[in-house]
Design a protein around this nucleic acid. Sequence first.
DNA 1: CCTTGATCTCAACTTAAGTTGAGATATTAA
DNA 2: TTAATATCTCAACTTAAGTTGAGATCAAGG
Lengths: 158, 158
Amino acid sequence: MKTNIVSIGEIAKRTGTQVSAIRFYADKGLIPALRSNSGHRSFHRSVIRRVSFILVAQSLGYRLKEIKTIMQSLPEQRTPTKLDWEKLSRGFVSELDQRISRLELLKKKLNGCIGCGCLSLKSCQLYNPGDAAAEFGTGARYLLGDKPTEFQPGSNKI
Amino acid sequence: MKTNIVSIGEIAKRTGTQVSAIRFYADKGLIPALRSNSGHRSFHRSVIRRVSFILVAQSLGYRLKEIKTIMQSLPEQRTPTKLDWEKLSRGFVSELDQRISRLELLKKKLNGCIGCGCLSLKSCQLYNPGDAAAEFGTGARYLLGDKPTEFQPGSNKI
DNA sequence: CCTTGATCTCAACTTAAGTTGAGATATTAA
DNA sequence: TTAATATCTCAACTTAAGTTGAGATCAAGG
């Protein structure tokens, strides 16, 4: 009797998360939840995949708020098709490409810095705070999908 | 009259940070501070570089706690030499290399996933929660230098 | 001397992403 | 039917990295 409707505990087990996290995602509107008339949440089987997606996206540094936005492209009504997921995955791959090339750039700069005799030269990236903030700080911060824009403690503004 | 001792405001200006942040770093023991007998903090000029280092390290995803540990290798007593900084930078470069290769791997997996017909196959990385958590979640989390080990809300334990 | 502007301390607040606990109700297996 | 699980809600707590504000003191220029 394998239905397409699963309990919150099942979702948690299948995704390796805590029940409280699933509740949290549901309350935040990241995953669609049904309610039994006694108040218990239940989920469509496809929600497992949605949660997996959330986890992967998180591991790439996305905030839940951003993930929610990205997932708007998934159909709320019907179960997402292979094509739906494909689009999202492709987005990730190009995101990864960007990240990789940013890291390569950072590495090149850092390498240059090692050889430059920093302590005496004013032109050094690391030594020059303006540049450092511009090239490493802000850039890399964005690179890691760091702080949100509304509230930025430690924002290295230039 | 260029001394080697600078005020907290100067450090903040030179590094593009807030005074409160410098105070915070000093109190946390990340940068060495002197005190005038009236209680005002003052810093050696080389602290500018230390702060820049902190900013770069942060942008790479390091926690202040980790940065503090890394910086233990810098001499507290004397001003760090070029060689001291070189060692730290080299560490970063190899860290970048690791990150880059992890991202490459992730990309390869994701690419494979796109073509695999996920919705029907159980072998898919994204679909299989255990694998997803292992390959993407935990791995990528560490990759981004994410959560600390003591307290892990949302730790995708397997 | 006096007024800015810079610092000081210390406590409270911010965001994100959940977790933990209390007290209550549901569901399920024996 | 009863005991053991599973869920429910809701509020309070956690960490990190600072920020903000209040009230007080310091330092420097005119």
